[in-house]
Computed example of a mutant assay.
Amino acid sequence: MRYPVALALTLLTETPVYTAALTRIGRVRPARAAAAGVLVNLATHPLLWWTLRHWTDGPAAAYWTGFALSETSVVVVEALLLCPVTGLRPRDPLPWIASLTANATSLLAGLLLGT
């Protein structure tokens, strides 16, 4: 999958998840919640894409280890980046749950589309 398509898929799947979670549970305005979802992805997606590209030529075990570490890092970074944009605190569970759910959703979408 080419990078622009992967980024578009990520934004199309994660932004609604962030928007729904942050507006319904976190009481963040919808426009701010959607903007937060886009911003955190624009901050993490290029680095994730670049990092995973370096693991594709090696053995499968190395790729999946790198993949797991990279995705875990993205969940943590996105949860922490959500806090200043939305007014949530890092010790609140919502940024962590929203980040994990959004990233799991886009990961599943990518796997289903055969990336």
Results as ranks from 00 to 15, higher is better:
residue 3 Y to C: 04
residue 4 P to W: 06
residue 5 V to E: 12
residue 6 A to T: 04
residue 8 A to T: 11
residue 8 A to R: 09
residue 9 L to S: 09
residue 9 L to I: 12
residue 9 L to Q: 12
residue 9 L to F: 09
residue 10 T to H: 00
residue 10 T to K: 04
residue 10 T to M: 01
residue 14 E to K: 00
residue 14 E to I: 01
residue 15 T to S: 00
residue 17 V to H: 04
residue 18 Y to R: 06
residue 18 Y to P: 06
residue 18 Y to W: 09
residue 19 T to F: 02
residue 19 T to R: 02
residue 19 T to G: 03
residue 19 T to P: 02
residue 20 A to K: 00
residue 21 A to W: 01
residue 21 A to G: 06
residue 22 L to P: 00
residue 22 L to Q: 01
residue 23 T to R: 05
residue 23 T to D: 02
residue 24 R to Q: 09
residue 24 R to G: 10
residue 25 I to K: 07
residue 25 I to E: 03
residue 26 G to R: 03
residue 26 G to E: 02
residue 27 R to P: 07
residue 27 R to K: 14
residue 28 V to C: 07
residue 29 R to H: 11
residue 29 R to I: 10
residue 29 R to Q: 13
residue 30 P to N: 11
residue 30 P to S: 11
residue 30 P to K: 06
residue 31 A to M: 15
residue 32 R to K: 15
residue 33 A to G: 06
residue 33 A to M: 06
residue 34 A to T: 07
residue 34 A to L: 06
residue 35 A to H: 08
residue 35 A to K: 06
residue 36 A to Y: 00
residue 36 A to N: 05
residue 36 A to F: 03
residue 37 G to A: 09
residue 38 V to D: 01
residue 38 V to P: 02
residue 39 L to G: 04
residue 39 L to M: 10
residue 39 L to W: 00
residue 40 V to Q: 00
residue 40 V to A: 02
residue 40 V to C: 04
residue 40 V to H: 00
residue 42 L to K: 02
residue 43 A to L: 15
residue 43 A to I: 15
residue 43 A to C: 14
residue 44 T to H: 02
residue 45 H to N: 13
residue 46 P to V: 12
residue 47 L to S: 07
residue 48 L to A: 15
residue 48 L to R: 14
residue 50 W to A: 12
residue 51 T to W: 01
residue 52 L to Q: 05
residue 52 L to M: 10
residue 52 L to E: 03
residue 52 L to P: 00
residue 53 R to Y: 15
residue 53 R to D: 15
residue 53 R to H: 15
residue 54 H to Q: 14
residue 54 H to E: 14
residue 54 H to A: 12
residue 55 W to Q: 12
residue 55 W to G: 08
residue 56 T to R: 13
residue 56 T to Y: 08
residue 56 T to G: 07
residue 57 D to K: 03
residue 57 D to L: 09
residue 58 G to M: 12
residue 58 G to S: 11
residue 59 P to S: 14
residue 60 A to E: 15
residue 60 A to K: 13
residue 61 A to H: 11
residue 61 A to L: 15
residue 64 W to E: 11
residue 64 W to K: 14
residue 65 T to R: 13
residue 65 T to K: 08
residue 65 T to N: 07
residue 66 G to R: 12
residue 66 G to D: 09
residue 67 F to T: 05
residue 67 F to S: 10
residue 67 F to M: 10
residue 71 E to M: 13
residue 71 E to Y: 02
